[in-house]
Structure formats: C-alpha cells, structure tokens
Design a protein around this nucleic acid. Structure first.
Lengths: 154, 154
DNA sequence: ATGAGTGCAAATGCTTTGCATCCTG
DNA sequence: CAGGATGCAAAGCATTTGCACTCAT
C-alpha cells in the first residue's frame, strides 16, 4: 500500500518531502480512518515541527490525486481512508468510528439489473444528478459502544 | 407533514413554543435539507430574537424524538431532513446539496436475500457492529454544478 | 408556580489562510 | 535556483455551553 501511494505521489507530480513521506506511511496501512488530529499526534514525536496546515495540505493533495479519500460521515472531523477499492462503511453513531465493509460477492460482478434500477431511482429523486460513486452506509453502534450500552442498561 | 410533527412534539412531552412551531413549520415541507444557519436566516424576519442555541436545541430535540434526522454527509454543516420514511440521498461533491432518492420498488418489499447478504458483509468487516440503519449515498455533481462544470470546460 | 425553553455571548473544535522561509527536483 | 511545500499564528465557520430570564403547561 505504501509503495502504491508513493508511486502515485510521483506520478501526480507532487514533491516527496519528509512530511509527506511520514503522512503516507502513517496512513497507508491504517484501517482506523484517522482524523487530521490523530495523524498529527502520531507524527509529532518524529517531526516536531509538523503543522496542521501541512497535514491538511497533504491529505487534500493525496485525495485530489486519487490516492486516498476523505470521509464526512459523522459530525465533527473528517476522516481519511487509504483504501481506494470500492467498499462500504459502518459508522458508529456514538463514537464516530468508521469501519470498512467489504463488497458482498454479488456486488463485485458486473453492474447488471441493480445498476439500472439505481440509476432510475436517482433520476426520479434528483434529475440531472451526475453519479460518480455509490456507497452504502451502515449506521449503528460499533462493538465497543454496543457493549458499553448493554452494560449501562443492566 | 406539519401535523404529524406537531403531534409528535406533544407525544414526546416537548413544550410547544412559538420558536418550535416556526422551526417545525419551516422544516416540515422543505425537501432541501436546510442547515441550522439557513433555518435561522429564514425565521429571523418573523422572530428576530431567535438564536442558534434555540435552533440547535430544537433540531436536536426533534431528532431525539424521531421526528426528523440530522445528516452528516458532507464536510461543513449538518443538514436536517423531515422525511422519516426510508430513502437514500444524493450528495453533491461540489456544493454539498443533498437530495432525497426514493427506494426502488424492489427495495420496498421484505428484506429477503439482500438483507442476509448485507448482514454477512458487516460481520466480515466490523464484527459486533449493531446495525440500526442502512442507507445508500450517491456522490457526484448535482444538476446545477454539473452544468456549471460543462460550461467551464468548454 | 415551576421547570423547560430561550437568548445572548463567550468558548470550543475543526479547518483554512496569509505569508515569510525552506528545500525538492 | 525557481516554485512548490512548510510552519506558524491568526482568522473563519459550525456548534456548544453557561447562565439569567421568560413563559407554556
């Protein structure tokens, strides 16, 4: 994952600075969808002068280059996802945690019937809307918060 | 829609103040998913002393009572949706506008095969996650932004 | 009358910006 | 060695909070 992203940085004509290298390395193999704050906290020990501006600049540059995506699925801060394969997300209503959900086997095949049906729905609700991506969002409680909830209700 | 919401306000044991009445009326038949700011701007002429605190308090109370929902689908401000029937959303990546997308006919029937498949996917990606709602999010450009884009690229 | 609700202003948290300086390509 | 990238601090929004006052029930 790191290699693919670093290759992408060059391919996009972005300069490879120590800060960007650190951010790419921190993000690449992280499935926790960190916020800018979390990334900064994690990198500060190694690069004490790194600033929010740089973290945001870099994450924005990476997502503009199609190397990661920024998620706005819950109130509060944006989260960043290095996984560019199509997939869904589960979002905890309590703590905001986001998990990747793999596509079901049936969703990985060709578009088919399903796609046509979806296109019709969008046309009905938002004529002229140009769909670029579709994802499913599961909302509820993550394992940790669900457990805490059960304990509290006892 | 207004009547249902006002009934819900009573049923939830919430006091019906002029501010709440105005907010409910403004939200009830609005399909544009207004932000707190937009609602306040719209209501200020009639109730000049209305404050953000009241708008947020009320919207929060309404969604806690299950009378509207708050959407966090794009960066920036939350949007509020009076439509409590299951439906999907189309979100414009450029301007943040949100449109309701009706469920396709096939989605309205009983859960069936589909639901089981989804449950399996969630279990695979986020063990222990307690799903309370599932929605589809279509991302892309709304008609207006798509048109602007086409013009710009000419 | 009483406590939920309101309004104001200040505080908080996330993100962006301006600009001087630095360093990659 | 030129222009992209960084770092700092200040500014900008969205949202929340504290508290005295008001009013719906």
């Amino acid at each position: 994952m790191v290699q693919r992203m670093l290759g992408g940085v060059r391919a996009a004509g972005l300069r490879l600075t120590p800060q960007r290298l650190a951010i790419v390395r921190a993000l690449a193999d992280d499935t926790s969808h960190p916020t800018a704050q979390e990334l900064l906290d994690r990198l500060r020990p190694a690069l004490p002068t790194m600033s929010f501006a740089t973290v945001y600049n870099t994450l924005f540059a990476l997502s503009a280059a199609g190397l990661c995506s920024s998620l706005s699925l819950s109130p509060g801060s944006s989260r960043f996802d290095p996984n560019m394969e199509p997939h869904h997300h589960a979002v905890c209503d309590r703590c905001g945690a986001v998990s990747d959900i793999p596509l079901a086997a049936a969703e990985r095949g060709g578009p088919s019937r399903e796609a046509a049906r979806l296109r019709r729905s969008v046309g009905a609700g938002a004529p002229g809307f140009e769909v670029r991506a579709v994802e499913r969002v599961f909302r509820g409680l993550c394992a940790r918060c669900a457990a805490r909830d059960r304990r509290a209700r006892t």
